[in-house]
């Protein structure tokens, strides 16, 4: 029983740390595409966390929506954003749009 408790704590701790660091990486990564992909994997891990919290209903909903549909929506919007910039102006413009956003703190 004791070993099982320690194992559970280890699992919870690992899950918590990886969730937090995935969210951190997703919100801090300079590349937007990478940020979206990290966010999708964050959603997938969230489904595991819901199972740990005895909420299988939410886990199902999160796996289908949080990981699947939100990811599709975000990636589709990202693709259209890119399309837009290309049609508005030339390649230089996209580069500045895609990358200069990254970690600018408001001055």
């Amino acid at each position: 029983m004791e070993a099982l408790t320690i194992l559970n704590w280890a699992l919870d701790g690992l899950l918590g740390v990886s969730l937090f660091s995935l969210a951190w990486l997703a919100l801090a990564s300079p590349d937007i595409f990478k940020a979206i992909v990290l966010f999708i994997s964050f959603g997938l891990l969230m489904a595991l966390a819901w199972v740990r919290l005895n909420a299988p209903d939410i886990a199902l909903a999160e796996a289908a929506i949080g990981a699947g549909l939100t990811g599709a929506l975000l990636l589709a919007a990202f693709a259209r954003l890119k399309d837009n910039s290309t049609s508005v102006s030339d390649g230089e413009e996209i580069k500045s749009h895609m990358h200069h956003d990254s970690n600018e703190l408001p001055k």
Partner: peptide, 29 residues
């Protein structure tokens, strides 16, 4: 299946609807 089983097991309208939505997205893609 999720819709039907939602009466007495994890599942239900939202999960089933999300899956249908995912199928629709796949078709649109």
């Amino acid at each position: 299946y999720l819709l039907w089983v939602g009466a007495d097991a994890p599942g239900g309208a939202f999960q089933a609807g999300a899956l249908l939505g995912a199928a629709g997205v796949l078709l649109l893609l």
